[in-house]
Structure formats: structure tokens, C-alpha cells
Amino acid sequence: MHSIYTFVTGPLVWVAFLVFIGGLAGKFVYLTSLAKNKDPYVFSYLHLKYALRSIIVWLIPFSTRNMRLNPVMTVVTFAFHICLIIAPIFLLAHVIMFEEAWGVSWWTLPDAVADVMTWVVLASIVFFVVRRRVVPEARYVTGPKEFVILGLVALPFLTGFLAYYQIFDYQTMIILHVLAGEAMLVAIPFTWLSHVMLYPMIRGYMGSEFGAERHVKDW
């Protein structure tokens, strides 16, 4: 058991991060060079001010008409993304591992807050699943793939939570937790989870088109 633990928290972490970062970098290079060859005008219309305007406005809750039309979805989406990103980075247990490995550490969240954030992530995913089953326009375009991806995002949080509270066998759960986290990282470049990178890319371009060329807001 211990050797499996050492393996998944050692070499496999490197592999996961390499695929995650390398995959996204590769996707970025692939899409930008493709755009240079086939859609060169994407670059002629890029406009820093309006690209940033679009990216920033869409990161502010209730700033767009559609966010105001769907208040519950807006609250859940923002809470979900904030917790999803903040909780793992500032979790005490994660920071300790970095400190032990590299001797670097940073500010950490109190465990109680991290707990709440985990709950928020899991509850949001339940909300997304229910929404995709219940809301006709979401249900119509949702396939099995979407639920698999949501599951991939939920698992690291669920297993992390179970491990922390030592529900079921701790050793097994912590290994599953690390594996689930690695699976999610690996999935990012190859699924629509890549919107973590494509969001600023598409917004930057469309924001430039709307702001600089069409002189109009894109929200």
C-alpha cells in the first residue's frame, strides 16, 4: 500500500502535471498556429483593451444580461469556480506536501473553510447534474460525456473529503483521492474542461471583434 502511495504521489504527479500543462501548451500552440495559417485575421483584429474588457466583465457576477436572467445559475457557477480553484491550492494538507518536497509553502485556508468550499463544489456539481436532467435546453445538448466530465471533477473533492474525515479505509481513500485529482488534471486538455485556457482565448478574440470592430458590448 505504501509503495502505491509513494508512486501516485511521486512520479504520477509529475506525469499528471506534465500532461496537464504540456497538453494545454500544445493545444495553445496548435490552435494559434492553425489560426495563423487558416484564420489569419483573428490576429489582425485582436485588440488588447477590448479583449481584456470582455474577459474581465464576464468574470464579474451579474455584470451581463444573461447572468441577471439566470441568477441561481450565476451564483452557483461563480461559487463553484471560486471554490474549485481556491480550495485545492490553499488546502493545508496540499501545502504541507509541497513544503516537504520542495521546501516552499504559502498561506493556507483554515480546515473549516476548506470543508465548506468542498461542500460548495460537490453541491454545485449535484446542481449541474440535476439542471442538465431537468432544464430542457440543457438536457437536449447534454450527452453521457458531460456527466463523466462532471464526475471527474467531483471525484477528487469527494474522495478528499472522505479521506480527511477518515470515512472508509484512509489509505485506500487517499490513494483514490490522488488518482482522481490526477485524472482530472489529465482530462483538462482533452475535454471541454480546456475552457480554463480557451475562455480567455475566445473571449479575447470575440471581445476584440465586438469592442473594436463593431463598437458594441458583447454582454
Binding site: 490552435l31 494559434t32 492553425l34 489560426a35 495559417n37 487558416k38 484564420d39 483573428v42 444573461n66 436572467l69 439566470n70 445559475m73 432544464v135 435546453e137 440543457a138 438536457r139 437536449y140 445538448v141 447534454t142 450527452g143 458531460e146 471541454w192 480546456s194 475552457h195 480557451l198 475562455y199 482565448m201 475566445i202 478574440y205
Partner: peptide, 21 residues
């Protein structure tokens, strides 16, 4: 004829249905 934008748009859609309104 189409590539980068098409791939980015199609690959990014999370099929949330929020465009509907």
C-alpha cells in the same frame, strides 16, 4: 476552409444551454 475558430468554438462548448435565452 475552417479550422482554428471552428475547433476552439466546438471544443469549448460545455453544452450548458445558456445561449438559449
Amino acid at each position: 476552409e475552417n479550422s482554428a475558430r471552428l475547433k476552439a468554438f466546438v471544443g469549448t462548448c460545455v453544452s450548458c444551454g445558456l445561449c438559449s435565452d
